[in-house]
Simulated assay, not measured.
Amino acid sequence: MIVYNPSGSHPESLRNCQVYMKRILLAIFIGLGLSACATSPLGRTQFMMMPEDQMAVMGAQAFVNMKQKLPIDQSPQTNQYVVCVAESIVKEIGGNGGQWEVKVFQDDSPNAFALPGGKIGVHSGILRVARNQDQLAAVIAHEVAHVLSRHSNERASQQLAMQQGLNVIQAITNPTTQTGQMMMGVLGLGAQYGVLMPYGRLQESEADVVGLELMARAGFDPQQSIDLWLNMEQAGGGQPIEFLSTHPSHATRMQELKQHMPKALELHRSAQALGKTPRCGA
């Protein structure tokens, strides 16, 4: 029996062609994966496809959106306090630090965030939980650690790998769309935009450790980080509040902080010997 083939190609040739194309695509994806490998500050292998300058553009636009959505706290005393703590932290980043924009938002939720491109947002509600400058430093250092560890890039790359052709710049400038909300979640702003895309527990643990060392190098008391998490737990009424909802369990976090505390205390002593004694207030 003769089977009509309108393309004029033999079925076996078509199968061979399909196999060949699959191999090419596989080689392309493998090449992209190898070229996108990076290393976190703690030595963990990461998958990253997004250029850092594009992540900075996304972060800057997201911050503009936040300033349009949330009222900004105009209290000179509060702003001076928060900026003092934040600047003490980012000074320790060195050549990669640059200038960071810091804003205090009038929002009762105990939350804070940092974005690629040097943006830090602090909700006024966090000041009721972070009861002194060292505890506030633990919060801000944790969020800055997410940026230093390029966790947003890591998550954005994973999304791009699954959704080809995503225009991230267009998405981030229009957060009301489904894609825009997804990209806001990638940057750690999911709760504010009604979509939950939290950092993974591994990323949260990484930010805890990197942030602990960062605050210690700035001259803040790293032991206050443990008190901060206890305050957070109490503020949640026995349940993790928004800021902690994706973290490891409280017991695991305390254990990890204590394991890294000897090094943090050593960094703190070195910082004090260099005259790093922040006096921001509260």
Rank of each mutant, 00 (worst) to 15 (best):
F63E: 10
A137G: 10
G43W: 00
Q170S: 13
Q158C: 08
N65A: 08
G95I: 13
Q74L: 02
T177D: 12
M58E: 03
P198Y: 02
L14P: 05
I28Y: 11
G185C: 04
N79Y: 10
G43L: 06
S245C: 00
I226Q: 05
S205W: 01
L265C: 04
R23F: 01
F243S: 11
V210Q: 10
P110E: 01
Q61R: 12
Q99R: 15
Q239V: 11
L214K: 12
Q77N: 08
K258Y: 00
E154Y: 05
P71Y: 03
Q170T: 09
K91H: 14
K103Y: 04
M261R: 05
M21S: 12
L230H: 10
G33W: 10
S152T: 07
N16A: 13
D107H: 08
M182Y: 07
A216D: 06
Q181T: 11
I172F: 01
V82K: 06
N65Q: 13
E154G: 06
C84R: 06
I93Q: 11
R44K: 14
G8I: 04
S245Y: 00
N96V: 07
E242D: 13
M183D: 06
M162P: 04
A216N: 09
R15V: 12
G238I: 07
I30C: 14
S270N: 14
V83P: 08
S40G: 09
I2C: 07
L127S: 05
I172S: 05
P11E: 13
P222K: 07
A130L: 03
A216Q: 09
H151I: 01
M21N: 14
L202W: 09
P240V: 01
S35T: 10
L32A: 11
G180T: 05
F243D: 01
D221C: 01
H142A: 02
S7D: 15
M48D: 03
T45W: 09
G125K: 06
S225Q: 07
Q135N: 04
L196P: 00
M232F: 13
Q80N: 11
L212K: 07
P262V: 02
L267Y: 08
Q77C: 00
L127Y: 03
P51V: 08
E204F: 01
V90R: 10
M21G: 09
L257T: 05
A62D: 00
D134A: 06
V90Y: 03
V186N: 06
T78R: 10
Q99A: 15
T177I: 09
S40I: 02
L189G: 03
L202N: 15
F47V: 10
G33M: 12
L228S: 04
F113I: 05
N5D: 14
T252N: 12
A264W: 02
G118P: 01
E92S: 09
A191W: 07
L196E: 14
Q135A: 00
G165L: 04
